[in-house]
Protein backbone atom coordinates (compact mmCIF):
# COMPACT_ATOMS: atom_id res chain seq x y z
CA UNK A 1 0.00 0.00 0.00
CA UNK A 2 1.32 3.44 -0.94
CA UNK A 3 0.49 6.31 1.36
CA UNK A 4 0.90 9.92 0.32
CA UNK A 5 1.33 12.35 3.21
CA UNK A 6 0.72 15.96 2.23
CA UNK A 7 1.81 18.30 4.98
CA UNK A 8 0.66 21.89 5.09
CA UNK A 9 2.35 24.18 7.58
CA UNK A 10 3.63 27.71 6.93
CA UNK A 11 6.65 27.26 9.24
CA UNK A 12 7.42 23.57 9.28
CA UNK A 13 10.88 23.85 10.81
CA UNK A 14 9.44 25.64 13.85
CA UNK A 15 6.74 23.07 14.47
CA UNK A 16 7.73 20.48 17.08
CA UNK A 17 4.64 18.40 16.37
CA UNK A 18 5.32 18.23 12.62
CA UNK A 19 8.98 17.41 13.21
CA UNK A 20 7.93 14.69 15.64
CA UNK A 21 5.52 13.20 13.08
CA UNK A 22 8.21 13.29 10.41
CA UNK A 23 10.57 11.37 12.69
CA UNK A 24 7.77 8.87 13.37
CA UNK A 25 7.15 8.00 9.71
CA UNK A 26 7.15 4.22 9.24
CA UNK A 27 9.55 2.47 6.86
CA UNK A 28 6.68 1.50 4.58
CA UNK A 29 5.94 2.85 1.13
CA UNK A 30 5.35 6.49 2.10
CA UNK A 31 5.58 9.56 -0.07
CA UNK A 32 5.97 12.66 2.11
CA UNK A 33 5.56 16.17 0.76
CA UNK A 34 5.51 19.58 2.38
CA UNK A 35 3.24 21.75 0.29
CA UNK A 36 4.65 25.15 1.30
CA UNK A 37 8.19 24.00 0.38
CA UNK A 38 7.26 23.52 -3.25
CA UNK A 39 8.54 26.51 -5.22
CA UNK A 40 5.68 26.08 -7.66
CA UNK A 41 2.86 23.60 -7.98
CA UNK A 42 3.41 21.15 -10.81
CA UNK A 43 -0.20 20.13 -11.33
CA UNK A 44 0.56 17.09 -13.50
CA UNK A 45 3.14 15.81 -11.02
CA UNK A 46 0.83 16.36 -8.03
CA UNK A 47 -2.03 14.61 -9.79
CA UNK A 48 0.23 11.70 -10.79
CA UNK A 49 1.25 11.36 -7.15
CA UNK A 50 -2.39 11.27 -6.08
CA UNK A 51 -3.14 8.58 -8.67
CA UNK A 52 -0.28 6.43 -7.37
CA UNK A 53 -1.36 6.54 -3.74
CA UNK A 54 -3.84 4.17 -2.11
CA UNK A 55 -4.23 6.32 0.97
CA UNK A 56 -3.89 10.10 0.96
CA UNK A 57 -3.24 11.90 4.22
CA UNK A 58 -3.69 15.63 4.62
CA UNK A 59 -1.73 16.77 7.64
CA UNK A 60 -1.90 20.25 9.09
CA UNK A 61 -2.49 22.42 12.15
CA UNK A 62 -6.03 23.72 12.55
CA UNK A 63 -6.12 27.46 11.83
CA UNK A 64 -9.48 29.08 12.45
CA UNK A 65 -11.35 25.79 12.03
CA UNK A 66 -9.71 24.99 8.72
CA UNK A 67 -6.45 23.94 7.10
CA UNK A 68 -3.75 26.58 6.49
CA UNK A 69 -4.05 28.67 3.34
CA UNK A 70 -1.29 26.63 1.64
CA UNK A 71 -3.47 23.53 1.54
CA UNK A 72 -6.45 25.44 0.19
CA UNK A 73 -4.25 26.86 -2.54
CA UNK A 74 -2.99 23.35 -3.34
CA UNK A 75 -6.58 22.07 -3.50
CA UNK A 76 -7.70 24.90 -5.76
CA UNK A 77 -4.75 24.41 -8.10
CA UNK A 78 -4.31 20.61 -8.18
CA UNK A 79 -7.82 19.32 -7.68
CA UNK A 80 -9.28 20.62 -10.88
CA UNK A 81 -12.91 19.84 -11.64
CA UNK A 82 -11.92 17.77 -14.67
CA UNK A 83 -9.43 15.75 -12.62
CA UNK A 84 -11.71 15.00 -9.68
CA UNK A 85 -15.01 14.23 -11.41
CA UNK A 86 -15.49 16.27 -14.58
CA UNK A 87 -14.69 13.57 -17.10
CA UNK A 88 -16.46 10.87 -15.08
CA UNK A 89 -13.30 8.81 -14.67
CA UNK A 90 -12.95 9.50 -10.95
CA UNK A 91 -9.21 8.77 -10.62
CA UNK A 92 -9.42 9.14 -6.83
CA UNK A 93 -12.33 6.73 -6.39
CA UNK A 94 -11.91 4.16 -3.61
CA UNK A 95 -8.71 5.77 -2.37
CA UNK A 96 -8.79 6.59 1.31
CA UNK A 97 -8.57 10.17 2.56
CA UNK A 98 -7.27 10.64 6.10
CA UNK A 99 -6.77 13.86 8.05
CA UNK A 100 -4.06 14.33 10.66
CA UNK A 101 -4.89 17.57 12.41
CA UNK A 102 -3.09 19.21 15.31
CA UNK A 103 -4.92 21.64 17.56
CA UNK A 104 -3.86 24.14 20.17
CA UNK A 105 -6.96 23.43 22.22
CA UNK A 106 -7.81 20.26 24.15
CA UNK A 107 -10.18 17.52 23.05
CA UNK A 108 -13.06 18.76 25.20
CA UNK A 109 -13.01 22.16 23.46
CA UNK A 110 -14.20 20.57 20.23
CA UNK A 111 -17.80 19.82 21.09
CA UNK A 112 -21.02 21.78 21.39
CA UNK A 113 -20.81 23.71 24.60
CA UNK A 114 -17.01 23.42 24.54
CA UNK A 115 -14.68 26.41 24.17
CA UNK A 116 -14.60 26.07 20.37
CA UNK A 117 -18.26 25.09 20.08
CA UNK A 118 -17.65 22.96 17.01
CA UNK A 119 -16.59 19.35 16.52
CA UNK A 120 -13.59 18.55 14.33
CA UNK A 121 -15.86 16.54 12.05
CA UNK A 122 -18.01 19.63 11.56
CA UNK A 123 -15.03 21.94 11.02
CA UNK A 124 -13.55 19.54 8.47
CA UNK A 125 -16.83 19.04 6.62
CA UNK A 126 -15.54 20.71 3.40
CA UNK A 127 -12.77 18.12 3.14
CA UNK A 128 -15.24 15.30 3.82
CA UNK A 129 -17.46 16.72 1.06
CA UNK A 130 -14.48 16.73 -1.28
CA UNK A 131 -13.82 13.06 -0.46
CA UNK A 132 -17.48 12.30 -1.16
CA UNK A 133 -17.43 14.14 -4.50
CA UNK A 134 -14.25 12.34 -5.54
CA UNK A 135 -15.78 8.99 -4.46
CA UNK A 136 -13.00 8.51 -1.94
CA UNK A 137 -13.35 6.76 1.39
CA UNK A 138 -13.18 9.15 4.32
CA UNK A 139 -11.18 7.81 7.27
CA UNK A 140 -11.99 8.77 10.85
CA UNK A 141 -9.97 11.92 11.58
CA UNK A 142 -6.69 11.53 13.50
CA UNK A 143 -6.57 14.51 15.86
CA UNK A 144 -3.56 15.45 17.96
CA UNK A 145 -4.67 17.81 20.70
CA UNK A 146 -2.12 20.07 22.39
CA UNK A 147 1.01 18.21 21.33
CA UNK A 148 3.11 20.47 23.53
CA UNK A 149 1.46 19.14 26.67
CA UNK A 150 1.93 15.44 25.87
CA UNK A 151 4.04 13.44 28.31
CA UNK A 152 6.52 10.81 27.14
CA UNK A 153 4.16 7.79 27.40
CA UNK A 154 1.60 9.67 25.31
CA UNK A 155 4.23 10.57 22.74
CA UNK A 156 5.36 6.94 22.55
CA UNK A 157 1.77 5.92 21.96
CA UNK A 158 1.37 8.64 19.34
CA UNK A 159 4.29 7.26 17.28
CA UNK A 160 2.60 3.91 16.69
CA UNK A 161 -0.96 5.25 16.46
CA UNK A 162 0.26 7.63 13.74
CA UNK A 163 2.15 4.88 11.90
CA UNK A 164 -0.94 2.69 12.00
CA UNK A 165 -3.12 5.55 10.74
CA UNK A 166 -0.81 5.88 7.75
CA UNK A 167 -0.45 2.19 6.91
CA UNK A 168 -2.91 -0.11 8.70
CA UNK A 169 -6.00 -1.35 6.84
CA UNK A 170 -9.26 0.06 8.14
CA UNK A 171 -11.31 -0.41 10.24
CA UNK A 172 -9.09 -0.18 13.31
CA UNK A 173 -10.25 -3.55 14.66
CA UNK A 174 -8.25 -5.90 16.88
CA UNK A 175 -7.85 -8.26 13.90
CA UNK A 176 -6.35 -5.48 11.74
CA UNK A 177 -4.19 -4.26 14.62
CA UNK A 178 -2.86 -7.77 15.20
CA UNK A 179 -2.05 -8.16 11.50
CA UNK A 180 -0.22 -4.84 11.47
CA UNK A 181 2.00 -5.84 14.40
CA UNK A 182 2.47 -9.38 13.08
CA UNK A 183 3.80 -8.04 9.78
CA UNK A 184 6.42 -5.98 11.58
CA UNK A 185 7.41 -8.28 14.42
CA UNK A 186 10.08 -10.31 12.61
CA UNK A 187 11.73 -7.15 11.35
CA UNK A 188 11.64 -5.59 14.81
CA UNK A 189 13.12 -8.72 16.42
CA UNK A 190 15.91 -8.67 13.83
CA UNK A 191 16.70 -5.06 14.83
CA UNK A 192 17.22 -6.02 18.46
CA UNK A 193 20.72 -6.39 19.93
CA UNK A 194 21.80 -10.02 19.81
CA UNK A 195 21.35 -10.63 23.54
CA UNK A 196 17.78 -9.32 23.36
CA UNK A 197 16.62 -11.43 20.43
CA UNK A 198 15.63 -14.50 22.47
CA UNK A 199 13.26 -12.32 24.52
CA UNK A 200 12.01 -10.71 21.34
CA UNK A 201 11.28 -14.07 19.73
CA UNK A 202 9.55 -15.29 22.87
CA UNK A 203 7.30 -12.22 22.93
CA UNK A 204 6.54 -12.74 19.24
CA UNK A 205 5.60 -16.36 19.80
CA UNK A 206 3.23 -15.57 22.70
CA UNK A 207 1.66 -12.84 20.56
CA UNK A 208 1.14 -15.37 17.76
CA UNK A 209 -0.30 -17.99 20.16
CA UNK A 210 -2.75 -15.42 21.51
CA UNK A 211 -3.78 -14.54 17.98
CA UNK A 212 -4.45 -18.19 17.14
CA UNK A 213 -6.37 -18.69 20.36
CA UNK A 214 -8.68 -15.78 19.53
CA UNK A 215 -9.22 -17.19 16.02
CA UNK A 216 -10.10 -20.58 17.49
CA UNK A 217 -12.52 -19.05 19.98
CA UNK A 218 -14.20 -17.16 17.12
CA UNK A 219 -14.52 -20.44 15.20
CA UNK A 220 -15.97 -22.24 18.22
CA UNK A 221 -18.47 -19.44 18.79
CA UNK A 222 -19.50 -19.45 15.14
CA UNK A 223 -20.11 -23.20 15.41
CA UNK A 224 -22.21 -22.84 18.57
CA UNK A 225 -24.24 -20.03 17.01
CA UNK A 226 -24.84 -22.12 13.92
CA UNK A 227 -26.12 -25.00 16.06
CA UNK A 228 -28.35 -22.60 18.00
CA UNK A 229 -29.93 -21.52 14.73
CA UNK A 230 -30.85 -25.10 13.83
Amino acid sequence: MTTLVLVSHPQLADSTSQQFLKESLPDDDIIWEHIESLSSLDVAQEQAQLRRADRIILQFPLYWYAAPAGLKQWEDTVLTRTFVYGDHRYPLADKELGIVVTTGMPRQAFQRGGAEGVTLDAALAPLAALAHRAQMRWLPVFPIYQFGYLEEPEKLQLVVDYQRYLTQPQPDSLANRQDWFAQRLDGMVARLAEDQRTTGRLIASVFEQNREQIDQLHDTLAMIKEQDDD
Binding site: E23, P153, D161, L174, M188, R191, Q213, L217
Partner: peptide
Protein backbone atom coordinates in the same frame (compact mmCIF):
# COMPACT_ATOMS: atom_id res chain seq x y z
CA UNK B 1 15.58 4.57 19.31
CA UNK B 2 12.37 6.27 20.40
CA UNK B 3 10.30 4.69 17.62
CA UNK B 4 11.59 1.19 18.49
CA UNK B 5 10.62 1.71 22.13
CA UNK B 6 7.23 2.93 20.96
CA UNK B 7 6.69 -0.25 18.92
CA UNK B 8 7.32 -2.64 21.82
CA UNK B 9 5.20 -0.65 24.24
CA UNK B 10 2.35 -0.50 21.74
CA UNK B 11 2.68 -4.25 21.23
CA UNK B 12 2.27 -4.68 24.99
CA UNK B 13 -1.10 -2.98 24.74
CA UNK B 14 -2.21 -5.25 21.93
CA UNK B 15 -1.17 -8.30 23.96
CA UNK B 16 -3.23 -6.98 26.88
CA UNK B 17 -6.14 -6.49 24.50
CA UNK B 18 -5.70 -10.06 23.23
CA UNK B 19 -5.95 -11.28 26.83
CA UNK B 20 -9.15 -9.36 27.42
CA UNK B 21 -10.67 -10.53 24.15
CA UNK B 22 -9.76 -14.17 24.86
Amino acid sequence: KFTDRAFWLALKQVVAEQDRRS
